Amino acid sequence: MHGSIAPWLAWSGGFTAGTFDGGTRPSGAATLVFVAAADSTDPWFVRVDGYAGVGQSLAWDAPVIAEPGVPVRRSVTVFIADGILGTEGIETLIKTQGDNS
C-alpha cells in the first residue's frame, strides 16, 4: 500500500507564551510528538501554510469509505515536551510514557 509508515512524527519550535492579562512571558521551546496507533497504515500530513496542522491522511491515495454501522476511527497520542527533543529523546519519551500494553 504505502510502504513503510512512520509510527510517529515530531514538531519542535520556539514560542512566546501569552498571559491571561494580555502580556507575554519569556520565550521557550517545546516538542510535540504525534504517535499513531500500532496498527496504523495511514501516512502523516503536515500543514504549515495558513494554519499549522498534523494528522493522518485518510484519503492519501484512495478514499476511506464510512458505511452505516461501520464507523471510521483513528487515534493519535500527542506528547508535549519542554525543549527541542532529538530522535533519541523522542523515542525514550514514547517508550517511557506511552501505552505499552
Rank of each mutant, 00 (worst) to 15 (best):
D39L: 03
W60E: 13
I84G: 13
A29Q: 14
I5L: 07
P7E: 05
P68C: 04
A59L: 03
D39H: 11
L9F: 11
P63Q: 06
A17Q: 12
L58Y: 08
S57K: 05
A37H: 13
V76D: 08
F20I: 10
G53K: 06
T24P: 02
T16S: 12
G86N: 15
Y51N: 11
V72M: 03
T96A: 07
A52H: 14
S12Q: 15
D42G: 00
T16K: 03
V76Q: 10
P7R: 11
A29G: 09
R74Q: 09
H2E: 10
I84Y: 15
W44N: 06
P43A: 01
D61A: 13
I80K: 14
G3W: 03
T41A: 13
K95S: 15
A66L: 00
V78S: 08
V54S: 07
P26V: 02
S12F: 05
E91W: 03
I65Y: 10
E91L: 08
D21N: 11
P68V: 01
R73C: 08
A62C: 06
S27D: 10
T19H: 02
G53S: 15
F79H: 15
A66I: 00
A6W: 04
T87W: 06
A66H: 05
G22Y: 01
T77A: 13
I84S: 07
R74F: 00
P63D: 14
V54C: 04
V33Q: 12
A6C: 04
G23C: 04
V64H: 06
W44I: 07
A59H: 07
